[in-house]
Design a protein around this nucleic acid. Structure first.
Lengths: 265, 265
DNA sequence: TATATCGGTCGACATTGTCGAACGCCGTCT
DNA sequence: AGACGGCGTTCGACAATGTCGACCGATATA
């Protein structure tokens, strides 16, 4: 493989650095973080600024991400074929289930949310399109790991930090769960990522049977799970998710799979 | 001013090209569009692909925008201070007015929507965060033109294509409207951009009095405008907008202005 | 006021990206 | 079937390009 363009790699690293750090960063911070000379870093930043990818606070001189990224990110959504096909199906799923629905795809060792339908009530909700979710603890992530070898190895080599007391961290238990997901054809997340929140997810497959994305219904544990057993998670078996919800999510995922050209699922 | 980095400018031009064209583009198209040798274009695209900014369809070999842009665009929203301050105020405005609310900032000769609160009902709505609106015909755009000299000149030199029969295209009428906006302190758009849709907008000002953004309430003309006069727009006077809605939008914009450190407005 | 650090500039250097030709591949047309 | 034309990709030589580190003025700090 031929060499990639150095200045572009460095510019991308800067954008990621600015995206990671919560606050604005100064030129010297950026230069030292990437091991560059100040002059070099400034040249790249100046160009990125002229193109709208970064903005500079006039007073402090610090840099932050620019508006052009938002515009391009939106254009990405416009072109996204899977998302376009899923729009109407996910909308129906949200209405019929009464829960919020997410569409996620694999991206850089995590799940990128490319579509999010709010729960159909008046509660205040924040849009999560563009946000990342971990592979090892979310329903979307587990589905993708179970049916996509790349996601699987990504999740294995990543650090599985416990996010709640229910998070599965041991490799063997994680593997067992993925096997179960493969067998069942769907995955769940009962308070493994966020306290009080549960989710069900099913894979979207293209015409070759490859998992190209996943659809999940997410909501408060009390609504997603059956009330039986006093709500305790117990042995970790997956039987507690409401079966009608599982069926609805799987139907939705199948419908989208069919829509993108896969007649078998 | 020192020269900007050539390869970065070219990469940015490619991303914008991909964002503009609806469909995926081939390497030869991209190279010829930008006047580059195929080898050069390929080197840039290869790097952009490795960084996740573009993706390549495995079968056709064509290129499209990449998921990393969505992630970075989302990060941009996280850092956006004005948006963060406006979140709760715009939410309240949407609830009290019953209409959808947009927060826009000036970006590259247009209005970039950085926040969008859905109208609080169950109707199907598409999120417009990241979308661009024209300066000359929308309420958001006119407010920014009226109070921001840069936006003003941008709008003047741009082509004002008529979007509906009500769009103001003549320069003198546009200027007169901006003067009125400056005097009133708010702007309206009654079916000048979209048929059947009207909007009211007011500016957000920073501690120096500069307009840094605008807030708009948008909805069906029948709900935004007073029913008087049988709904015909007539002489173009702005008196038809519901006065309570104007007050609510202006109050919201003032509240955000106060929140970002401007006590005067 | 002295000082440390900031963002920004400049010019010499050689690394780096650019160019154009050539390659293998695939689909189409003859 | 065969030849063709177009596709994305690779390669190597060249010099244009981006990089580096010292330097500058302004600003914040003490």
């Amino acid at each position: 493989m031929a060499k990639n363009i150095q200045s572009l790699e460095r510019a991308a690293a800067m954008l990621r650095l600015l995206a990671g750090g919560e606050r604005r960063l100064g030129l010297s911070d950026i230069a030292s973080s990437l091991g560059l000379a100040k002059g070099t870093a400034h040249g790249i930043l100046r160009t990125l600024q002229a193109e709208g990818f970064v903005e500079q606070d006039a007073l402090s001189g610090r840099y932050q991400l620019g508006a052009e990224l938002l515009r391009l990110g939106n254009s990405y959504l416009d072109v996204h074929e899977l998302r376009a096909r899923a729009l109407v199906w996910t909308d129906d799923l949200a209405r019929s289930s009464g829960e919020s629905v997410h569409l996620g795809v694999l991206h850089q060792g995590g799940v990128l949310v490319v579509h999010h339908v709010f729960r159909p009530d008046d509660s205040r909700q924040v849009l999560e399109v563009g946000a990342m979710q971990p592979l090892y603890s979310t329903a979307l992530g587990k589905v993708l790991c179970a049916f996509d070898p790349v996601a699987h190895s990504d999740a294995l080599e990543a650090e599985r930090r416990p996010l709640t007391p229910h998070t599965v961290t041991l490799p063997e238990r994680f593997e067992a769960e993925l096997s179960a997901v493969r067998e069942k054809g769907w995955a769940s997340d009962v308070e493994e990522t966020w306290q009080g929140v549960a989710a069900v997810a099913a894979p979207i497959r293209d015409r070759h049977g490859m998992a190209v994305g996943a659809i999940a219904a997410t909501g408060a544990t009390e609504r997603i799970c059956d009330p039986e057993g006093a709500g305790d998670r117990g042995d970790g078996g997956p039987g507690r998710i409401r079966t009608d919800l599982v069926a609805a999510v799987r139907d939705c995922a199948r419908a989208v799979s069919r829509d993108i050209g896969n007649g078998r699922f």
